[in-house]
Amino acid sequence: MRGPHDVGGLPEGPVETEAHPLTFWEKQIDGLRAAVGAKGLVNTHENRAAVEALGHDAYNTLHYYERWTATLCRQMIEKGVLTQDEIDARVAAVRRRLADTGELETEGGAP
């Protein structure tokens, strides 16, 4: 019964001690999450619980801000703010638009 996030004491390799700066996209997600939080829609504890609820596979596969994006998506659906259908449609539209403008580097699929 150890959650995917509860890693204290587990065996791991060396620490990559050189910090890398946030990408433009990561900053956008950070700002979006902060803005949604400032509206009182979700609290920090709910955010953490939602990240843990992604499960081991998603938690260990996704990067930090990908996990935040995934949980924001789930939370907005669960709170009735957005629907899965409109999110799917917008994802398809954004993908087309980024492909057109050359900003889409690789076609990643959802796990």
Partner: peptide, 17 residues
Amino acid sequence: KVHSYYQILGVALKELL
């Protein structure tokens, strides 16, 4: 550059919200 499904999802969520 946008690499993954989740990055696209992030852009989509921002626009919708």
